[in-house]
Design a protein around this nucleic acid. Structure first.
Lengths: 357, 357
DNA sequence: CTGAAAGCGCTTACAG
DNA sequence: CTGAAAGCGCTTACAG
């Protein structure tokens, strides 16, 4: 059933021209006589010719694919990012080679090794947690333009200073969320969830600390609680917030999943998020809008990030001399019902108070 | 910066052998003398050789890629499916060519055309709504093994009888949900949301009707309400359920998004889902678990589907004579708080009643 | 055990 | 305006 594909030779023979002529016709060369062109195009049509880009790429020593390696496709944030990348690549004639790693560093090495054999013109990498810059460099090599998304690689500046980097403005996002809570009157604000050694978490913690500092507040150690960035783990860790005074009245969460988990954990302890405890998230996943109460969170635009990532890599593919990019995409606070003013001992809810920056 | 890649010739020269020998070493041929092998491997190592699979594929006239075209990557259901496909393909040395269509039939044609130029060994297609079998066939051609996922193409049996098909057991899932509501005592059950002309919707409606029929009930026309499969549209359509008696006391929804929208719509009309109106979904998306009330739904395993799809296509790539598959993957009811018994005029909640099948 | 040679489907100066 | 020829990086009978 699988028969030989139609090739330039078939077209050339049938149209009574050489293969070179077929190639010129296909690329719309103005040299070709109109009559010849018509004959060739006729044949391309009737024989159902399909261009073999791999052969052309081989001959021209270039590549029309870009590899996209994603740590967690099942996370809507990364899925949207992937869709954005594919959209922008497709629009410029590149094809996307997909590799998903499921947050496994080992799979990441394997996947990249396999993708490299397909000679991608560039790489967009959303690295698995715990990625090692040196190992990545050893499989990617020095000559394939690479953009790292979302997570800063350890010692990136030393080991892969020539790779582009694109991330959310984690610090600013966390600052916005924290400021919002301060403005509502909170003074004891926790930072809840995430792994402190991940770049996105440490950036967010920085923003949180900065906003607190601007209000003259220093975070108590027990206000910094780590957890895996999942709902379940977050729910489990909730108790850690209440083991020692001063107990927080609000929490800036690492992301929405953690925030939703915290809300479950609070409910289980008889606390009502959005009424006697304020919670913020990060990402603005669809659930944020339908949770009870709806979640105040920091909105990002992962699809736009994907498009930007693709454009950045394409730029470097076409001109390796563009300066290395370290892009930070803006984020935005979305206020919903999960953030309330603190409940005073009297039970009376205070009005929001303005804060000096 | 982008320099010529290391090739067989470089290795051959350095190791003092021919390119043929390098090839044999690379493929672990037992013919090669141990001493020669060592010399070559040494060079492969030190020069950082990377295999060029495209060149090899060209020469061997085969392909080591599979195209995966997805209608909506931002839907976690399809993102999980994609992850499953990539996982299974990667495990067998194939690379995944990604194309996302955003539910646009036009983009689908473009994306497929572009992907075909990369000569995929097979295609996994989750078609955009409104896909035309004939147009798809014209770009894919008769000789590339193709599996259609999730949505049946119109007249598939006539036009593309040689394509494999994999879908959820939509009918059984809807039957399960409907039966569950019947067992709770409901008699007036709506089928809410989806486009009636889509294959998944019509299958689900079939299952719904079957379950009703088994209980001796015929659906009233006003119990069948269409809507786009989104939360927003569903919320808007809610009123359609209550314009004419007999008004339903429960609804089997096309999917979870629709069910969540319906719950919002109900709340807006002063009805409390899970208390005076029962709702079921389909998909078991993460939100189902955290909505208020948590959503009773039909759970699927999209990642496993993806793996199965990949295996099926690989089987056909390696042996074009395997019989055409029409696979239906099992689904499972997950009961949560959104399904309650009907509220009787008295306001008293009846106990669940057993139903004769 | 190893090499010379032909060829996969294309492109691109170079002649004419 | 068109064709002959060389070559991209590999593979694979075929000699020896």
């Amino acid at each position: 059933m699988k028969q030989r594909r139609v090739t330039f030779s078939d077209i050339a023979t049938a149209a009574g021209v050489s293969r070179a002529t077929v190639s010129l016709v296909l690329h719309g060369s103005p040299l070709i006589a109109a009559e010849t062109r018509a004959r060739v195009e006729q044949q391309l049509q009737t024989q159902g010719y399909v261009y073999n880009r791999a052969a052309a790429d081989l001959r021209r020593r270039r590549s029309s694919s870009v590899a996209m390696v994603i740590n967690d496709l099942s996370n809507p944030f990364f899925a949207e990012f992937a869709a954005g990348v594919d959209e922008a690549l497709g629009a410029t004639g590149y094809v996307t080679l997909l590799g998903s790693t499921g947050e496994s560093v080992e799979r990441q090495q394997k996947v990249l090794t396999s993708l490299m054999e397909h000679d991608p013109a560039g790489i967009i990498l959303s690295p698995a947690e715990g990625s090692d810059s040196r190992r990545l460099l050893s499989v990617i090599g020095a000559h394939t333009p690479t953009l790292v998304f979302n997570r800063e690689l350890p010692h990136a500046q030393k080991i892969v200073p020539h790779w582009d980097f694109l991330a959310l403005d984690n610090r600013h996002g966390a600052r916005l969320a924290t400021k919002h809570l301060l403005q509502l009157g909170h003074r004891r604000i926790a930072f809840f969830g995430g792994h402190a050694d991940s770049s996105s978490c440490s950036e967010r913690r920085k923003g949180y600390r900065e906003a607190l500092a601007a209000a003259g507040i220093v975070a108590e150690p027990q206000w910094l609680v780590e957890s895996a960035p999942t709902r379940l783990e977050a729910a489990t860790q909730t108790s850690a917030l209440f083991i020692r005074d001063p107990v927080p009245t609000a929490a800036v969460c690492y992301n929405d999943a953690v925030a939703l988990g915290l809300m479950l954990g609070l409910a289980a302890r008889g606390r009502r998020p959005g009424y006697d405890f304020a919670v913020t998230g990060f990402d603005n996943i669809p659930e944020a809008d339908v949770s009870m109460p709806p979640l105040t969170t920091v909105a990002t635009d992962p699809r736009a990030c994907g498009r930007r990532a693709a454009e950045c890599v394409l730029a470097r593919i076409h001109d390796s001399d563009v300066p290395v990019t370290r892009m930070i995409t803006p984020v935005q606070l979305v206020v919903r019902a999960s953030t309330c003013p603190p409940l005073r001992p009297s039970g009376r809810k205070p009005r929001a108070e303005p804060i000096e920056p």
